[in-house]
Write a protein that binds this DNA or RNA. Structure first.
Lengths: 122, 122
DNA sequence: ATAGTTAGTTTCCTTTAAGAAACAGATAGT
DNA sequence: ACTATCTGTTTCTTAAAGGAAACTAACTAT
């Protein structure tokens, strides 16, 4: 871990920018982290279950985002031989590596909300 | 810390969604995390220094994003009595609380890039 | 036949994000 | 006078994200 007083070299800085861009490209947007979080913490879900769980997402958006997450190997899609057809979405083992990140995002959001509401009272 | 087998209640789930949305609303976009990261790890910078450090950002975008970050108390803006006028931007103590999050984003990005390039070789 | 469920796709539309270029107002150097 | 720097703003344009509603297609229940 770097100390506060440490500085980055130019090549280190370039790598940092690249790494942050990579991550944000995969996860930014209104729904992707929510989708991964739901699958990670609530378990395998079908399309309509996931849709209801997320609340206000549209079918098109969910379909598109799931497809992108599948391409990036964060989610698997399994068609079940049921009638009517059901499809199960599951977070991959690789998606588990996002847990610390999602936890940080969630924790900071909770802290920030407390901070904001406290400042408004004062 | 929750175990893998733990589930969230409905109210917990709503809070998670809210917390994640809050954070992402502040940080999503192409440049905001890069701006905060630069100020956190490279120290106080002037407008043009920051612009050059970020590389491809436009003046309008940098100006807009800095203003939003200022409103959210993550950055301070100080006009210096020099000629020509210079303005210093600095990460606030509150912005320091984002360090663990930014580190996670950066670390995951580095790991992901390694994973992807390894898979391409195989 | 009618209506409902599942899992989407297609089409159309609006909003947001972002970039490019020109300009402004102050100062300073030659 | 001309050019340059610094810190932006303004205007115009394009690209991407996202939402709403209708529709397909298969199956089930009444």
């Amino acid at each position: 871990m770097k100390k506060m007083t440490d500085h980055f070299s130019v090549s280190e800085c370039t790598k940092e920018i690249l790494a942050i861009s990579d991550t944000m490209e995969l996860l930014s947007g209104k729904w992707k982290i929510q989708i991964i979080g739901n699958l990670l913490y609530l378990g395998t879900m079908r399309f309509m279950e996931l849709k209801r769980s997320l609340g206000a997402i549209g079918a098109k958006k969910l379909s598109n985002d799931l497809h992108e997450l599948e391409i990036n190997q964060l989610v698997t899609r399994t068609v079940k031989n049921t009638k009517p057809i059901t499809v199960e979405y599951e977070a991959t083992p690789y998606a588990q590596t996002l847990k610390p990140l999602i936890n940080e995002i969630s924790n900071w959001g909770k802290m920030h909300r407390k901070t904001i509401t406290q400042n408004q009272k004062a």
